[in-house]
Protein backbone atom coordinates (compact mmCIF):
# COMPACT_ATOMS: atom_id res chain seq x y z
CA UNK A 1 0.00 0.00 0.00
CA UNK A 2 1.15 3.51 -0.84
CA UNK A 3 1.71 5.78 2.05
CA UNK A 4 -0.40 8.92 1.75
CA UNK A 5 1.36 12.04 2.81
CA UNK A 6 -1.28 13.94 4.82
CA UNK A 7 0.69 17.15 5.02
CA UNK A 8 0.78 17.40 1.22
CA UNK A 9 -3.02 16.95 1.08
CA UNK A 10 -3.50 19.77 3.58
CA UNK A 11 -1.16 21.90 1.49
CA UNK A 12 -3.15 21.15 -1.68
CA UNK A 13 -6.44 22.00 -0.01
CA UNK A 14 -4.99 25.29 1.13
CA UNK A 15 -3.78 26.01 -2.37
CA UNK A 16 -7.30 25.31 -3.70
CA UNK A 17 -8.82 27.72 -1.21
CA UNK A 18 -6.28 30.43 -2.00
CA UNK A 19 -6.96 30.03 -5.70
CA UNK A 20 -10.72 30.29 -5.19
CA UNK A 21 -10.34 33.41 -3.07
CA UNK A 22 -8.08 34.93 -5.74
CA UNK A 23 -10.77 34.31 -8.38
CA UNK A 24 -13.41 35.99 -6.22
CA UNK A 25 -11.24 38.99 -5.43
CA UNK A 26 -10.09 39.56 -9.01
CA UNK A 27 -13.58 39.23 -10.47
CA UNK A 28 -14.91 41.79 -8.01
CA UNK A 29 -12.03 44.08 -9.01
CA UNK A 30 -13.46 43.93 -12.54
CA UNK A 31 -16.82 45.17 -11.31
CA UNK A 32 -15.33 48.05 -9.35
CA UNK A 33 -14.82 50.50 -12.25
CA UNK A 34 -18.43 50.34 -13.42
CA UNK A 35 -19.80 50.65 -9.89
CA UNK A 36 -17.38 53.48 -9.12
CA UNK A 37 -18.33 55.32 -12.30
CA UNK A 38 -22.05 54.97 -11.59
CA UNK A 39 -21.55 56.07 -7.98
CA UNK A 40 -19.54 59.11 -9.01
CA UNK A 41 -22.00 60.14 -11.73
CA UNK A 42 -25.01 59.75 -9.47
CA UNK A 43 -23.32 61.63 -6.62
CA UNK A 44 -22.30 64.58 -8.78
CA UNK A 45 -25.10 64.56 -11.31
CA UNK A 46 -28.36 63.74 -9.55
CA UNK A 47 -29.02 67.36 -8.49
CA UNK A 48 -29.21 68.53 -12.08
CA UNK A 49 -31.64 65.82 -13.19
CA UNK A 50 -35.15 67.18 -12.92
CA UNK A 51 -38.08 67.84 -15.23
CA UNK A 52 -36.51 70.83 -17.09
CA UNK A 53 -33.44 68.66 -17.73
CA UNK A 54 -35.54 66.75 -20.28
CA UNK A 55 -37.53 69.69 -21.64
CA UNK A 56 -35.16 72.64 -21.94
CA UNK A 57 -32.22 73.21 -24.25
CA UNK A 58 -28.67 73.61 -23.02
CA UNK A 59 -28.07 76.90 -21.16
CA UNK A 60 -25.85 79.64 -22.50
CA UNK A 61 -22.60 80.47 -20.75
CA UNK A 62 -24.13 83.73 -19.55
CA UNK A 63 -27.17 82.07 -17.93
CA UNK A 64 -24.92 79.56 -16.24
CA UNK A 65 -22.56 82.25 -15.04
CA UNK A 66 -25.41 84.24 -13.50
CA UNK A 67 -26.92 81.21 -11.81
CA UNK A 68 -23.58 80.21 -10.44
CA UNK A 69 -22.81 83.62 -9.01
CA UNK A 70 -26.25 83.61 -7.36
CA UNK A 71 -25.42 80.21 -5.89
CA UNK A 72 -28.24 78.47 -7.78
CA UNK A 73 -28.32 75.33 -9.89
CA UNK A 74 -27.42 75.84 -13.55
CA UNK A 75 -30.73 76.22 -15.45
CA UNK A 76 -31.71 74.44 -18.66
CA UNK A 77 -31.44 70.87 -19.82
CA UNK A 78 -30.14 68.73 -22.62
CA UNK A 79 -33.27 68.31 -24.73
CA UNK A 80 -31.47 69.52 -27.87
CA UNK A 81 -28.97 66.72 -27.30
CA UNK A 82 -31.63 64.07 -26.63
CA UNK A 83 -33.62 64.94 -29.74
CA UNK A 84 -30.41 65.16 -31.78
CA UNK A 85 -29.24 61.73 -30.61
CA UNK A 86 -32.71 60.37 -31.39
CA UNK A 87 -32.69 61.88 -34.90
CA UNK A 88 -29.13 60.93 -35.81
CA UNK A 89 -29.30 57.40 -34.41
CA UNK A 90 -32.77 56.70 -35.90
CA UNK A 91 -31.63 57.66 -39.38
CA UNK A 92 -28.41 55.71 -38.94
CA UNK A 93 -30.52 52.69 -37.96
CA UNK A 94 -32.82 53.20 -40.95
CA UNK A 95 -29.79 53.05 -43.22
CA UNK A 96 -27.85 50.30 -41.43
CA UNK A 97 -30.61 47.82 -40.52
CA UNK A 98 -31.89 46.87 -44.02
CA UNK A 99 -28.41 47.00 -45.54
CA UNK A 100 -26.87 45.02 -42.70
CA UNK A 101 -29.60 42.38 -42.62
CA UNK A 102 -29.46 41.79 -46.38
CA UNK A 103 -25.67 41.62 -46.21
CA UNK A 104 -25.95 39.11 -43.37
CA UNK A 105 -28.45 37.03 -45.39
CA UNK A 106 -25.97 36.92 -48.25
CA UNK A 107 -23.10 35.84 -46.00
CA UNK A 108 -25.23 33.12 -44.40
CA UNK A 109 -26.54 31.85 -47.74
CA UNK A 110 -23.26 31.87 -49.67
CA UNK A 111 -20.77 31.34 -46.83
CA UNK A 112 -17.94 30.10 -49.00
CA UNK A 113 -18.08 32.37 -52.05
CA UNK A 114 -15.11 34.64 -52.71
CA UNK A 115 -17.35 37.70 -52.46
CA UNK A 116 -18.50 36.58 -48.98
CA UNK A 117 -14.92 36.17 -47.84
CA UNK A 118 -14.13 39.69 -49.03
CA UNK A 119 -17.26 41.17 -47.42
CA UNK A 120 -16.55 39.39 -44.13
CA UNK A 121 -12.99 40.68 -44.15
CA UNK A 122 -14.15 44.23 -44.92
CA UNK A 123 -16.72 44.22 -42.11
CA UNK A 124 -13.96 43.21 -39.72
CA UNK A 125 -11.83 46.06 -41.02
CA UNK A 126 -14.65 48.57 -40.55
CA UNK A 127 -15.20 47.28 -37.05
CA UNK A 128 -11.55 47.93 -36.26
CA UNK A 129 -11.45 51.36 -37.88
CA UNK A 130 -11.17 54.22 -35.33
CA UNK A 131 -14.44 56.12 -35.21
CA UNK A 132 -12.71 59.46 -35.83
CA UNK A 133 -11.53 58.17 -39.21
CA UNK A 134 -15.08 57.22 -40.13
CA UNK A 135 -16.01 60.76 -39.13
CA UNK A 136 -13.31 62.16 -41.42
CA UNK A 137 -14.63 60.06 -44.32
CA UNK A 138 -18.22 61.22 -43.75
CA UNK A 139 -16.91 64.79 -43.56
CA UNK A 140 -15.19 64.41 -46.92
CA UNK A 141 -18.11 62.60 -48.58
CA UNK A 142 -21.04 64.60 -47.28
CA UNK A 143 -20.16 67.71 -45.34
CA UNK A 144 -17.73 69.09 -47.94
CA UNK A 145 -19.81 68.41 -51.11
CA UNK A 146 -23.04 69.70 -49.51
CA UNK A 147 -21.28 72.64 -47.92
CA UNK A 148 -22.83 72.17 -44.49
CA UNK A 149 -22.53 70.15 -41.32
CA UNK A 150 -25.70 68.08 -40.98
CA UNK A 151 -27.50 65.38 -39.03
CA UNK A 152 -27.51 63.15 -42.11
CA UNK A 153 -23.71 63.27 -42.32
CA UNK A 154 -23.58 62.14 -38.68
CA UNK A 155 -26.14 59.42 -39.39
CA UNK A 156 -24.11 58.07 -42.27
CA UNK A 157 -20.97 57.95 -40.14
CA UNK A 158 -22.83 56.08 -37.40
CA UNK A 159 -24.51 53.78 -39.95
CA UNK A 160 -21.08 52.72 -41.22
CA UNK A 161 -20.14 51.86 -37.64
CA UNK A 162 -23.37 49.89 -37.09
CA UNK A 163 -23.12 47.86 -40.29
CA UNK A 164 -20.50 45.27 -39.28
CA UNK A 165 -22.32 44.50 -36.03
CA UNK A 166 -25.66 43.96 -37.78
CA UNK A 167 -24.15 42.00 -40.68
CA UNK A 168 -22.34 39.58 -38.39
CA UNK A 169 -25.18 39.08 -35.92
CA UNK A 170 -27.58 38.40 -38.82
CA UNK A 171 -25.16 35.92 -40.34
CA UNK A 172 -24.58 34.10 -37.05
CA UNK A 173 -28.30 33.90 -36.22
CA UNK A 174 -29.29 32.63 -39.65
CA UNK A 175 -26.54 30.01 -39.55
CA UNK A 176 -28.02 28.62 -36.35
CA UNK A 177 -31.42 27.96 -37.94
CA UNK A 178 -31.90 24.33 -39.00
CA UNK A 179 -31.45 23.76 -42.72
CA UNK A 180 -34.73 21.87 -42.79
CA UNK A 181 -36.61 25.13 -42.18
CA UNK A 182 -35.47 26.55 -45.48
CA UNK A 183 -36.07 23.25 -47.25
CA UNK A 184 -39.58 23.03 -45.79
CA UNK A 185 -40.39 26.46 -47.18
CA UNK A 186 -39.00 25.69 -50.62
CA UNK A 187 -40.69 22.26 -50.64
CA UNK A 188 -44.03 24.08 -50.51
CA UNK A 189 -43.20 25.68 -53.85
CA UNK A 190 -42.34 29.04 -52.32
CA UNK A 191 -39.98 31.43 -54.03
CA UNK A 192 -36.58 31.92 -52.47
CA UNK A 193 -37.42 35.55 -51.64
CA UNK A 194 -40.50 34.54 -49.68
CA UNK A 195 -38.63 31.83 -47.79
CA UNK A 196 -36.05 34.40 -46.68
CA UNK A 197 -38.57 37.14 -45.86
CA UNK A 198 -41.41 35.09 -44.38
CA UNK A 199 -39.68 32.06 -42.86
CA UNK A 200 -35.98 32.62 -42.17
CA UNK A 201 -35.90 36.25 -41.02
CA UNK A 202 -38.97 35.95 -38.74
CA UNK A 203 -37.49 32.79 -37.20
CA UNK A 204 -34.27 34.68 -36.57
CA UNK A 205 -36.05 37.77 -35.24
CA UNK A 206 -34.77 37.61 -31.66
CA UNK A 207 -31.16 37.28 -32.75
CA UNK A 208 -31.51 40.07 -35.29
CA UNK A 209 -33.22 42.35 -32.78
CA UNK A 210 -30.48 41.77 -30.21
CA UNK A 211 -27.80 42.56 -32.78
CA UNK A 212 -29.60 45.75 -33.77
CA UNK A 213 -29.99 46.90 -30.15
CA UNK A 214 -26.32 46.28 -29.44
CA UNK A 215 -25.34 48.17 -32.58
CA UNK A 216 -27.56 51.09 -31.53
CA UNK A 217 -26.16 51.15 -28.02
CA UNK A 218 -22.67 50.99 -29.49
CA UNK A 219 -23.13 54.18 -31.55
CA UNK A 220 -25.42 56.12 -29.22
CA UNK A 221 -22.45 57.30 -27.18
CA UNK A 222 -20.17 58.04 -30.15
CA UNK A 223 -18.72 61.54 -30.09
CA UNK A 224 -15.70 61.79 -32.37
CA UNK A 225 -17.43 61.09 -35.72
CA UNK A 226 -20.23 63.50 -34.82
CA UNK A 227 -17.80 66.38 -34.12
CA UNK A 228 -16.81 66.32 -37.78
CA UNK A 229 -20.31 65.76 -39.18
CA UNK A 230 -23.30 66.82 -37.07
CA UNK A 231 -21.18 69.50 -35.33
CA UNK A 232 -23.74 70.46 -32.67
CA UNK A 233 -26.53 72.97 -32.21
CA UNK A 234 -27.96 75.10 -29.45
CA UNK A 235 -31.57 74.52 -30.55
CA UNK A 236 -33.79 71.51 -31.11
CA UNK A 237 -33.32 70.52 -34.72
CA UNK A 238 -35.40 68.01 -36.68
CA UNK A 239 -34.05 68.89 -40.13
CA UNK A 240 -31.55 66.32 -41.35
CA UNK A 241 -29.78 68.96 -43.45
CA UNK A 242 -28.89 71.17 -40.49
CA UNK A 243 -26.21 70.85 -37.83
CA UNK A 244 -27.57 68.92 -34.89
CA UNK A 245 -26.52 68.31 -31.33
CA UNK A 246 -26.33 65.02 -29.48
CA UNK A 247 -25.98 64.07 -25.84
CA UNK A 248 -22.36 63.07 -26.35
CA UNK A 249 -21.59 66.32 -28.19
CA UNK A 250 -23.16 68.30 -25.35
CA UNK A 251 -20.93 66.55 -22.83
CA UNK A 252 -17.93 67.64 -24.89
CA UNK A 253 -19.21 71.21 -25.12
CA UNK A 254 -19.96 71.38 -21.39
CA UNK A 255 -16.48 70.08 -20.66
CA UNK A 256 -14.94 72.89 -22.70
CA UNK A 257 -16.84 75.66 -20.91
CA UNK A 258 -15.74 76.39 -17.32
CA UNK A 259 -19.19 77.68 -16.41
CA UNK A 260 -21.04 74.65 -17.79
CA UNK A 261 -18.64 71.96 -16.66
CA UNK A 262 -20.90 70.94 -13.78
CA UNK A 263 -23.42 69.69 -16.34
CA UNK A 264 -21.15 66.91 -17.62
CA UNK A 265 -22.09 64.69 -14.66
CA UNK A 266 -25.82 64.69 -15.18
CA UNK A 267 -25.47 64.37 -18.97
CA UNK A 268 -23.02 61.51 -18.62
CA UNK A 269 -25.29 59.78 -16.12
CA UNK A 270 -28.20 60.03 -18.54
CA UNK A 271 -26.16 58.70 -21.47
CA UNK A 272 -24.72 55.84 -19.45
CA UNK A 273 -28.14 54.77 -18.14
CA UNK A 274 -29.59 54.94 -21.66
CA UNK A 275 -26.89 52.64 -23.02
CA UNK A 276 -27.08 50.31 -20.02
CA UNK A 277 -30.83 50.03 -20.57
CA UNK A 278 -30.37 49.12 -24.25
CA UNK A 279 -27.83 46.47 -23.26
CA UNK A 280 -30.09 45.04 -20.58
CA UNK A 281 -33.02 44.79 -23.01
CA UNK A 282 -30.78 42.98 -25.49
CA UNK A 283 -29.59 40.62 -22.77
CA UNK A 284 -33.14 39.93 -21.63
CA UNK A 285 -34.15 39.00 -25.17
CA UNK A 286 -31.18 36.63 -25.53
CA UNK A 287 -32.08 34.92 -22.26
CA UNK A 288 -35.71 34.57 -23.23
CA UNK A 289 -34.77 33.00 -26.57
CA UNK A 290 -32.23 30.56 -25.21
CA UNK A 291 -34.71 29.21 -22.69
Amino acid sequence: MRIINTSSIVYRQLKDKAFFIAICVLSSVMAIPLIAILFELIQKGYKQISFPFFTETAPSTLDAMMAKSAGELIPGGIVNGITGTLLIVSIAALIAIPTGILGGVYLAEKPKSIFSTIVRFLTELIQGTPSIIIGVIAYAWIVVPFGSYSAIAGSIALAIMMLPLIVRSTEETLKMLPRSLKEAGLALGSSYTNVVLKVLLPSAFNGLFTGILLAISRVTGETAPLMLTALGSTVINWDINNPTSSVSLLIWEFYNDPYLIDLIWSSSLFLLLLILALNLIAKYIVQRTSR
Binding site: P178, E183, A184, G185, L188, G189, S191, K198, V199, S203
Partner: peptide, 23 residues
Protein backbone atom coordinates in the same frame (compact mmCIF):
# COMPACT_ATOMS: atom_id res chain seq x y z
CA UNK B 1 -39.03 15.57 -43.67
CA UNK B 2 -37.38 13.27 -41.17
CA UNK B 3 -37.68 15.67 -38.26
CA UNK B 4 -40.94 17.55 -37.76
CA UNK B 5 -40.27 21.12 -38.91
CA UNK B 6 -43.31 23.33 -38.45
CA UNK B 7 -42.47 27.00 -38.99
CA UNK B 8 -41.67 28.26 -35.48
CA UNK B 9 -43.06 31.75 -36.01
CA UNK B 10 -46.41 30.60 -37.35
CA UNK B 11 -49.54 29.43 -35.55
CA UNK B 12 -50.98 25.97 -36.18
CA UNK B 13 -53.52 27.41 -38.63
CA UNK B 14 -50.89 29.47 -40.44
CA UNK B 15 -48.60 26.46 -40.71
CA UNK B 16 -51.33 24.65 -42.62
CA UNK B 17 -51.83 27.73 -44.79
CA UNK B 18 -48.09 28.35 -45.20
CA UNK B 19 -48.07 26.97 -48.74
CA UNK B 20 -50.65 29.57 -49.75
CA UNK B 21 -49.09 32.44 -47.82
CA UNK B 22 -45.59 31.73 -49.10
CA UNK B 23 -46.83 31.48 -52.66
Amino acid sequence: FQHPNPFPTMSIANNVLAGYNLN
